[in-house]
């Protein structure tokens, strides 16, 4: 990991007191943390604990009621993405940010071929050379272990695991610096999950990605995350290094969560 080499004083993402309310009910409340370049943060908690609300607030899909989400942009340094203009935010979300949905169908264009899906972000940032777009699409298919001969097939002809890998390729093709993942392994069977996790771990390390992963699967964070945040009822109840939190949980709920995992 590159975290200790000292010149990374500026966090990639600074989250300050982010709150999102749904009327009187709390979505997430007063969440703050820093994410440094190359770091993977896991957010765990049960259904309804506010994980996805938090992730969507950070990624700009929801507007938080309070708080700041400060991203270290390439051009201007740290900028609050909540108050930045919409064109800037949308530009960010197709260049430096990536969002991997739980259901690949939400993140893919099902009526467009695999190559077109991967090429979309390239074309969105101005690539106008068919040959080079196709070459990069083929390269990325290879990196997510989909055979190149499937490049002109539609995602609807792919298995669930392949769709998820395609979604990842489509997101990473522009070399983003921050990836938001919402239950990336949800709905996949365990052997496919294992392959996907292996792939993700390789890509994260190789590209030096920072990532925020929301999941209820502790095995996923154990494998991928450097740090862990445990949420319950919209509040963060425990944070720390992944191994520390999982091996020595302090909060009663975290203890319950860790002990609920079946040991095979």
């Amino acid at each position: 990991m590159t975290r200790d080499d000292g010149n990374l004083a500026v966090p990639l993402l600074q989250v300050r007191n982010v709150s999102k309310l749904y009327g009187a009910r709390i979505g997430c409340s007063d969440v703050s943390f820093d994410l440094y370049p190359g770091e993977v943060m896991g957010i765990v908690g049960e259904s309804g604990s506010g994980k996805s609300t938090l992730l969507n607030s950070l990624a700009g899909h929801l507007v938080p009621d309070r708080g700041e989400v400060i991203f270290d942009t390439r051009a201007e340094g740290p900028v609050d993405t909540v108050t930045m203009s919409e064109p800037e935010r949308r530009m960010l979300s197709r260049t430096d940010w990536a969002f991997v949905h739980q259901h690949a169908r939400d993140g893919l264009r099902m009526s467009v071929s695999a190559g077109g899906n991967i090429g979309e972000r390239l074309m969105a940032v101005g690539d106008r050379h068919y040959g080079s777009i196709r070459e990069r699409a083929a390269d990325w298919l290879g990196r997510v272990e989909i055979r190149e001969c499937r490049i002109d097939d539609r995602p609807s002809a792919f298995s669930g695991g392949m769709q998820q890998r395609l979604q990842i390729a489509r997101n990473l093709v522009t070399g983003p610096r921050l990836v938001f993942m919402d239950e990336p392994t949800g709905g996949l069977d365990v052997s496919v999950q294992a392959k996907l996790l292996d792939l993700l771990r390789g890509l994260v390390r190789e590209m030096g990605l920072s990532a925020i992963i929301v999941t209820h699967d502790l095995a996923v964070v154990r494998l991928l995350a450097d740090r862990l945040m445990v949420m319950k009822d919209g509040h963060v109840i425990e944070t720390g290094l992944t191994d520390q939190v999982l091996d020595d949980p302090q909060h009663a709920y975290t203890q319950l969560l860790v002990s609920s995992v079946l040991q095979v």
Partner: peptide, 9 residues
């Protein structure tokens, strides 16, 4: 960018 996705297809 989407317009070009159509032409790509």
């Amino acid at each position: 960018g989407l317009m070009h996705v159509k032409l790509y297809e």
